[in-house]
Design a protein around this nucleic acid. Sequence first.
RNA 1: UGCCCGAUGGUGUAAUUGGCAACACGCUUGAUUUUGAUUCAAGAAAGUCCAGGUUCGAGCCCUGGUCGGGCAACCA
Length: 551
Amino acid sequence: MAEEKSSNFLEEIVENDLKSGKYSGIITRFPPEPNGYLHLGHAKSICLNFGLALKHGGKTNLRFDDTNPITEETEYVESIKNDVKWLGFSWSNEFYASDYFGELYEFAIVLIKKGLAYVDDSSPEEIAFQKGTPVKAGTGNVYRERSVDENLQLFTEMKAGKYKEGEKVLRAKVDLASPNMHMRDPIIYRIKHAHHHRTGGTWCIYPMYDFAHGQSDAIEKVTHSICTLEFIPHRELYDWLITNLGIYPSRQYEFARLNMTYTMMSKRKLLQLVSEGHVKGWDDPRMPTITAVRRRGYTPESIREFCDKIGVAKRENLIDIGLLEFCVREHLNKISLRRMVVTDALKVVITNYPEGKMELLPSENNTEDPNGGIREIPFSRELFIEKDDFMEVPVKKYFRLAPGQMVRLKSAYIIKCEEVIKDSAGNVSELRCTYVPESKSGSDVSGINVKGVIHWVSVPHALEVEVRLYDRLFNMEDLNQAEGDFRTLLNPDSLKVLPKVYAEPSLALAKSADRFQFMRIGYFCVDPDSTPAKRVFNRTVTLRDMWAKKN
RNA sequence: UGCCCGAUGGUGUAAUUGGCAACACGCUUGAUUUUGAUUCAAGAAAGUCCAGGUUCGAGCCCUGGUCGGGCAACCA
């Protein structure tokens, strides 16, 4: 395996640790809380954790950080496992913080016995007040002076269910004057008489994040525990616990979370969008969740490529969603089958083409793929073309159809617009054209050169399908700068449904999850809402379109 | 009135760890093209937040500022 140069600060750390002999192999972990669906921000973390281990011959555990029974559900753990697999990664072990509740409890006992933890009867308000402020030291209370024996007994009683929620907590005795608020005697255990998705009613006391995460890392002998920037202040406590418990010295490193334009990565807010019905569900193709981008037609390869391209650093960032789109286009361009679909139809009658005649014209499935093969498309006297491909009064440099002008019908003939038919309202309703018989694709002897090539569908053979067009979820570029209710910033036009568009007949064979390029329009995939009677396609992303941009 | 992170083209990430700023997206122009796509070629765009200092030499080191972000949930 070729030795690549480290590409970011995390790799540099890992490589140095390996080179110095600090570790002979590394272990990382991806530690989601099963309280929601994974999004692109998690994808970054997944690619980082698994990528680091893959590159250096290490292992990665999938560990569910399930220490808060009231927010966590089995539905979420299943979706998370599914998403990680879809992204193309396999974990060495599937672990749960709740697997360690017994050991964690013993760790708490150790702390109490060392005089480093105490049971506090204060209310949340009292505790908050006694912690002081960042610029004012906290103050102790009478509970802080309880004896080891008393703490031991009280904590045992907490575990036994003797107390109600909120009556007592276990706190680490660290330093109430620390400039780091997280060190001011953090709460490490609280009482919750709640059903846990895995341990059921076994426990009524649950460890806090800070008392579970580092120890779980230590138990699994995680060497590099990477997390996002907001956990930096927690690192001091993470290390304090490892030192005072005398357990495996896992190390925490932090990187900047992913932010993207026109969308948001807050699990809480995404949940709100779902529960309030602003989107149709966690897998609504407009959502930044993994399950949604999957349904939208993104490939795992393109997501991984994206995560690779955005890099990792410790500074705040705002990634242009255009980069994600570039990554899918790049991949889809190589793999998707080309098909012709007319989304906004205008009827064309080829007046010199015999009535009732039909020819099957071959067309490449994918010009990017030499082995892609061809399919045959029926051609007849009556066709649909895109309304946008005709202009009664053409603008300069317009290569498409206009009165008296010619275009090539993709894989078929060159046609010339002879007559424009309008309805009573004055709208163009039909075009009368003639075709050049010698201009047949592949055997063109007409000698005519046309600049424009447009897609088309034969009217009698057209397959009616539904197409769903997605646009950015929000109208604001940087949602982190939003003030007030973020829901007012939702893009009202983020979904446009075209219930009846005309597709070439081969699309009747499209299977769920098949991906296509609708020529000159964009990349589409089959949505699970499809039925045998009606196929539904999601637009993954448009094609790059310099012409549209200019006009 | 504290502590902790951070600051490089529009965006994101690099810079052999002190040697004269690179790559990608985006943008512009041209060529090719039976997708105004793709591909190809060329180009514009930062002198590295500011001020000092060390040095032959600083984006990298030091000092002091400025700006941005984070930290006081019985959330993770």
